[in-house]
Every structure is written in C-alpha cells, then in structure tokens.
Computed example of a mutant assay.
Amino acid sequence: MRADARKNYDHLLAVARDVVTEHGADASMRDIARRADVGLATLFRHFPTREALFEALLREDLDALTQKAVELERSNPPDEALVSWFREGVAFVHSYSGVVAMMASAHATPDSALYASCAAVHSAGERLLLRAQAEGSARADVNGDDLFALMSALGWLGDQPSFAPRADHLFQVIASAILSERTSGDVRKARC
C-alpha cells in the first residue's frame, strides 16, 4: 500500500473506531465517511462491506487478546491465567456496543471476514481452559465453545443498563462456575 493510501486507511480506521465507540455496531457508514471528511465511495473502496470495516477495527484487539493468552499461559498458574484472560475477553466484548452478535455470528461462519480473528481468540481461550482442566482447576464439562459463549453473554449483559452495576458480580459468578470447586473460591485472587 502506498504511503498516502496507508495514511488514508489509518485515518478512516481511527474515525471509525471513534464512531463505533460512540454508537456501537450499528454505527452508520455514512457517518463514518462524513466525519472522516471523505466520500462514501472512498470509505467503501477501503472497506467494501460493513463486516470488512469491523474486521479491520477488531483484528488488532482480537490479536492482542490472543497474544495476551500466550503471555498469561507462560507466566501464570492455569486457573489465574484462565480467569485473567476471560476478564480481558469480557472487557473487550463490552468495549463496542453490539459487537457481541457480530462476533457470535462470525464465530460459526467460515466465510465471514471476522472468522479467522474470532477463531484465533476461541482457540487461545480453549488452550487456557484445557491447561486449567489438565491441572484440575477448571470443570471438565466446559469446552471452548462454552467459554466463548459465556464471554459473549457477559459482554452483552454489561451493555444492558439494568445489569451494568452488577457486571463485576456476574463475572465472579460465571468465573466461579467455570473453575472446579477446588479453586472457585480463588476467583477474586485471579482478578489481575
């Protein structure tokens, strides 16, 4: 990509990130183009679909979440690594209103532009879960799909005004349910 094209691309992404942060996944492509001071055709030249735009917006965050799993796996006990990563995942899902539905759909659709990034996050979480299960600190009847679904559910709950004040409590309840009885009392310790 030429330097000027890269600059335009980065500018569009920065503006899109601001608009999506304000308005969630339903942010208008037209509003993004207007705020970036470009025509709608220019926006669509860089991002031919809404999903392509979200893939570009979310890829960096999803890649960071995947990398965080690797770091935690290397430096923390299995139960702490799992709970810390799970908390990071919930915070990410909650960071953009409405992104939960998009990620949940992409997770099961290999043709989706978001599929690869969602699959990488899913795999990273599953590795942490399997490691905790091997140690006996996570329930054996929970799998990677469950973990991804619970992360999505907690992110969605955090978007609901009536549940927002209880978000941390709900996280603690779900994290305790993922861990085995032997370690579920230690969820608060693993908050990192």
Rank of each mutant, 00 (worst) to 15 (best):
S84I: 05
A101V: 10
V70C: 11
A101F: 11
D63C: 08
W85C: 02
P78C: 11
A81F: 03
P78S: 09
R87V: 07
H107G: 06
R131I: 02
S105V: 11
E60Y: 06
E71L: 13
D159M: 12
G125W: 00
M151L: 15
R74F: 06
A138N: 05
F92V: 01
A177T: 13
V121N: 00
A104E: 06
L62V: 05
G125V: 01
A108S: 14
Y96C: 09
G89F: 03
S112W: 04
D61T: 02
T109D: 12
R139T: 13
P110Y: 03
L150Q: 02
S95A: 11
A69F: 02
L150Y: 03
H169I: 15
A140M: 15
N76Q: 10
D63K: 06
D141W: 10
D79T: 09
R131C: 05
L72C: 07
S123D: 08
E73H: 09
P110K: 05
W85L: 02
L114P: 01
G155Y: 02
H107Q: 12
T66S: 15
V142C: 10
V70F: 12
N76E: 14
H107N: 13
D145S: 08
A138C: 06
I174E: 04
A116R: 02
Q160D: 13
D145P: 00
Q133Y: 14
T66G: 11
